[in-house]
Write a protein that binds this DNA or RNA. Sequence first.
DNA 1: ACTACGCCCCTTTTT
DNA 2: GGGGCGTAGT
Length: 675
Amino acid sequence: MPLSRLNNEQNLAAIAPLGHNLIIASAGTGKTSTIVARIAYLIQKGVHPSNILLLTFTNKAAAEMVERVSVFFGKAITSQIEAGTFHAVSYRLLKKLGHKIVLKQPKDLKILLKSIVERRRFDQIESSAKPYSAAYLYDIFSLYQNSTISLSFSDWLAENDSEHGAYFDIYEDIFEEFCELKKEFGYVDFNDLLIFMREALKSTHEISYDEILIDEYQDTNTLQGSLIDAFESKSLFCVGDYDQSIYAFNGANIDIIGSFATRYDDAQVFTLNKNYRSSNKILSLANRVIEKNPRLYEKRLEVTRNGEFEPPKLLIYDELFYQYQAISSMIKVSTCHQDDIAVIFRNNSSADGIEATLREQGLTCKRKGGTSFFDAYEVKAMLDLISVVVNPKDMMAFIHVFEYAKGVGSSLSKELFDALFKLGEGNIYQGFFHPKSVDELFKKRAKNHQLGLFDDIHDFGSVSRFYNLGFEETFLSNPILKHPRLNTDGAKFLHHFYKFMKHSTRIKNPQTFVNHVLSSEVFSAIAEILATKRVIKKDGSVDENEKQEARGRIFRKGHLLKDLALGYASNERFLNALTLGSNEMSEGEGVNLLSVHASKGLEFKEVYVIDLMDGRFPNRKLMQKGGSLEEERRLFYVATTRAKDMLYLSYAKYDKIKKISYIHSPFLVEAGLAH
DNA sequence: ACTACGCCCCTTTTT
DNA sequence: GGGGCGTAGT
């Protein structure tokens, strides 16, 4: 059984009585096994699996832990455990409570926020500081929401950045409007999931757990902490390591783990000291460095692995790219299986270089954050087409789709959306198919000073200009076609879209729905535009064969998306799952390429920590913006403790593209590898 | 006034 | 590679 394989320390933690238990688990001490054993122990003791809540940092980690428990009890039991990230769990529970939620990517919401910011006047305000950009304002507000639950935005800003005092009122006002706009369009962001969940828990007794297990407890931020509190669980099982707290930029509050023992009367603290992962030499290097940080508790890690291992090796190169090439060569000749090798870096900007040199060597690599797939325009277009059906209030999705309509820019597409929104009383599907009569459908042109050319030619927006284009009767009679600036191309695109919408609402199965998107005229038109754009030569000529191939690639991505849709109960769930977990998916096979943050919780036989230059790692820029050397040191600790057998640390003295000279990272000095 | 397009800037870490 | 900005064209 699960408990039999634990050591004494782990066992004591796993069988702790219900209550408030904190497990301090240093790197490689078997915390996953301990959590798995704890869950198994609870189930054995008669706790119903649906009364267990497991909160992890990635959904993948949650799935793996539940999978390991199911070895003992079977899937029928373990599938009842509520497990996932704070965000994924909140989403599922809110759905269960009947909330309608459409999760939006921060990128889209930044555009929305920008539209509000642009309408504000800052120039009359006297201040030495320039107002924040919309994107930065979104990020800093997000950090605020994650960092505090007691302060107002202004008060929080005042504590962190006093120079913007003159703008505080405007900022507050902007977010008030932003909040209303989100509500109007039915949008929810990552933070909203947690905030809504916390609020929902205040007014329901439907949801409660016998025990909540929290992995990576050191990275819990104030908002997440308040959510844990809101569950009012009598039993917590929190697992973490102070030295691996690397999410300060997201509001991670180290006091939450630090004050655990004093926060609860019945607090019990267990410590796991036996390291099963790394060789003694790797471990002592990592410990030498992390000991430079102030100690919250004594670390006395015991090495359990016997045998002779190579000591960690420092590799020095004259130039950045030589470094990547040399490391790729070493990986090529390594006897280690490629899946068991990881290249770890502080900044993602290192990834492209190392990926390129690996490819030169004929090696493939695995990268986290399925960026290339979900960043592709065709994939975004497909997701926007799904979004607009799932949420007929979704302005952003509508506007993104209409970027592909010729003669329709951001201004007209917004006006079209507004008109459909009014015609359908807040629902563009209704606006298309059951339009109400509206007095002033289109806003009058603000001024008609320079009229002449276009403004009065189409002034009445006579629908007769769209006769003989083969439009359906019901479409022709829709008031939307009276928009004065809508041209024939735009109307054709709108008609494609209309037909797509018409047959959409009945399709509940996500796979069927993706098929519906792929066979629609709208998507076909979008694919046509993208394919043409991708093969067009400088002289404007297009090779038909090449274009068909490009079209083929676009539709192949469509079928990939269809495969991903398998198993989701509704379009809404499919869409939200992609937003919640798209960047957990990794792409490719072979050598693992990971940022330090992405490497958290993983282990590899052979690890290369690269670009260890002062400025890049530690990242001095971030340190100036509220980071700290301590945090960077913890990042170094996390990176090095991923290694089981062999650890390489490397840096380059010069970057010939950026023309920057570097000196080695101070952590290499602290590690005793450099002076 | 709005759309389309070409050129120049920067590029942190995550749900 | 993407977003911001200036310019030409409708």
